[in-house]
């Protein structure tokens, strides 16, 4: 054809992911409802301990074979492998940084016009969603596009070597905030909620069953769906590669990241966050094990702890139907 179109030659399911079936103390073994079929294969070129490929694995298992992934410039541009092979056993359409949601709009309309039910899933990083891609995302949500947009959030431009993004939290060091970020993380979920999508959820790489269930549910509903998934990034956040899942759990248990879903405007707290709504570990337990927060000030830590408390109160009020 004359355009870069990679094939599946020589691929088989990667062994790398076996690690996820390990049983952690006091946790359920997350293997029951999830199909064995793999769509992310052996030639993946992700970093060791990569949360983005871990999330992608469960997203694609939940979506199944009748799915196209639309991927803007992000870590997944690399994770899927290098021409002429691909690590994805699904059609993957790689598009310009700012354009993922708009490409998905056109693709979804074309499939529906032809009577096809093919899932169209944007799988984009935080930079491609919160910063450069937010206009296209806003437009696609507002137009009622029948698609699922998943933002895997590693809180920086990790693909280009950890520069600050709108999703980088207060106090975090990146290569462009060497003294720690002085601004808060942008509230992407509030922006998305203002578009009233039919389904909106958060998830975390550390809780694959919760993630799987949400993707499955999202794809069963026609219309615009959005998921925001926390992706603890070992090189970016500066923690050991084997601690990805542990870091995600600390985020949820400290209340810094709350697992929920909002269906037709009704909010439900899910999974491990149910407990965290009542009782949380201090955020220092989460901050202190990451090198990126080495320069966070006491004042900033207090501010962040206050934001956690405010968010929990706000979400609880929404659950209770008070706001």
């Amino acid at each position: 054809m004359g355009c870069p179109l990679s094939g599946l030659a020589g691929n088989e399911p990667t062994q790398y992911f076996i690690i996820i079936h390990v049983k952690y103390p006091n946790e359920r073994l997350y293997t029951m409802a999830i199909p064995d079929e793999e769509f992310l294969l052996k030639t993946t070129s992700a970093c060791a301990g990569c949360p983005s490929s871990l999330i992608l694995r469960y997203v694609t298992k939940a979506a199944g074979a009748d799915t196209v992934l639309v991927i803007p410039a992000c870590c997944t541009s690399v994770i899927q492998g290098v021409y002429p092979t691909t690590a994805m056993n699904l059609p993957v359409y790689n598009v310009a940084f700012a354009s993922a949601a708009a490409v998905a709009s056109g693709m979804s309309e074309a499939f529906r016009a032809e009577g096809k039910k093919t899932n169209v899933i944007c799988y984009a990083g935080d930079g491609g969603t919160i910063d450069i891609g937010i206009q296209a995302l806003s437009g696609a949500l507002e137009r009622g596009t029948d698609f699922l947009y998943i933002c895997y959030d590693n809180e920086a431009y990790s693909n280009t070597g950890m520069q600050r993004s709108g999703a980088t939290p207060l106090g975090a060091m990146t290569t462009t905030t060497p003294g720690g970020k002085k601004d808060h993380k942008k509230d992407l979920d509030a922006i998305v909620a203002a578009h009233h999508p039919v389904y909106q959820a958060t998830a975390c790489a550390a809780y694959p069953q919760d993630l799987y269930n949400k993707v499955e549910k999202a794809l069963s509903i026609p219309g615009p769906k959005f998921m925001h998934v926390l992706a603890p990034c070992p090189p970016g956040w500066r923690f050991p590669s084997e601690k990805t899942v542990e870091m995600g759990k600390l985020a949820v248990k400290s209340g810094l990241w709350v697992l929920y879903e909002r269906e037709n405007g009704k909010l439900t707290i899910t999974g491990a966050s149910k407990a965290a709504m009542k009782k949380r570990i201090p955020i220092e337990d989460y901050l202190s094990v990451q090198g990126r927060f080495r320069k966070i000030t006491a004042e900033e830590t207090v501010k962040m702890q206050q934001m956690v408390e405010d968010t929990i109160v706000r979400l609880q009020r929404e659950v209770d139907g008070i706001c």
Binding site: V70, V103, A104, A113, Q135, A136
Partner: peptide
């Protein structure tokens, strides 16, 4: 035709790309 009222020209070409990728006329 499906008429997509996009929010910018960057997105109008993006939408055409997404649709044309499936093999339809745009």
């Amino acid at each position: 035709a499906r008429y997509i009222p996009v929010e910018s020209e960057h997105s109008s070409m993006a939408a055409c790309i997404g649709a044309a990728a499936t093999g339809v006329r745009t």
